[in-house]
């Protein structure tokens, strides 16, 4: 089978750790470094032409965005190798990291056990939310649209001094665009993801947005205006009155 051949091609050092929606993720060693390989495997439900086109675009987007982020001073995993032939990207395996999703879930459970109020939980998550807002502000100030902002696509790294760093991952849907519309939709996607995944901390987004505004000052007013417009579209709001 072609599929097995591809797995072997990655070498025996690599172990499949996850099958996401888009890619199979392998963990292993590449040139002596802990490495993640993301293989955007063929999706047989899509037409071959369409699938090839989409995959190629996404690999390109991911590589480009990582580079742009690096220039802008936003943390992302370092890129080691891009292999169009095998539809793979090799990148740094960020050590000592958890996804924001797991982190919020963990903190929520702890708070529940301590019988804390929603307010105290929010207080605990406040520094993280601030940090997220800051990173996103910077991202948009540099005209990078992530395209798939969720709590699973952000890593939290804590060093020995307890300094928090947010590392953004999964740039497959990203593009470079200066329009307010795209930035607003990017934020909207994040808010929706937070609402559906972490319903207990729905106010978290307000803090993120606050920090975002401070970071991306120049555009904050217009992005917010667009953001409200996006919410008013279609069937997304409930009719009052």
């Amino acid at each position: 089978m072609a599929d097995d051949g591809r797995k072997c091609a990655l070498g025996y050092d690599f172990k499949l750790i996850k099958q996401g929606a888009e890619a199979k993720v392998y963990k292993g060693n590449y040139l002596g470094r802990p490495t993640i390989v993301k293989e955007r495997f063929k999706k047989s439900y899509r037409l071959l032409d369409l699938d090839n086109h989409i995959t190629k675009e996404r690999i390109k987007s991911e590589a480009r965005a990582v580079l742009r982020c690096k220039i802008a001073g936003i943390h992302t995993p370092a890129l080691y190798l891009v292999d169009f032939e095998r539809r793979c990207i090799y990148m740094e395996d960020v050590q000592n990291s958890t996804t924001i999703k797991d982190y919020i879930t963990q903190i929520s459970e702890e708070a529940e056990n301590e019988a804390g109020t929603a307010g105290s939980l929010l207080m605990k998550l406040y520094p993280i939310a601030q940090e997220i807002g800051k990173v996103l502000g910077k991202l948009h100030a540099n005209n990078i649209i992530h395209g798939d902002l969720t709590s699973s696509n952000m890593l939290l790294v804590k060093d020995e001094k307890d300094t928090l760093t947010i590392v953004l991952i999964d740039f497959g849907l990203s593009h470079v665009e200066s329009s307010m519309e795209d930035k607003a939709v990017d934020l909207y996607v994040l808010q929706r993801a937070l609402m559906s995944t972490h319903a207990n901390v729905d106010r978290l987004f307000a803090t993120i947005l606050d920090a975002y505004m401070k970071e991306n000052k120049k555009e904050s007013h217009e992005v917010l205006k667009k953001f409200n417009e996006v919410w008013a579209r279609g069937r997304k709001r409930t009719m009052v009155g």
Binding site: D49, L50, H53, L173, V185, V189, L190, A193
Partner: peptide, 13 residues
């Protein structure tokens, strides 16, 4: 014959 069209996915939207 397949006509290439825009493909618009924004996260899960």
């Amino acid at each position: 014959k397949f006509l290439s069209l825009p493909y618009v996915v924004k996260g899960m939207d």
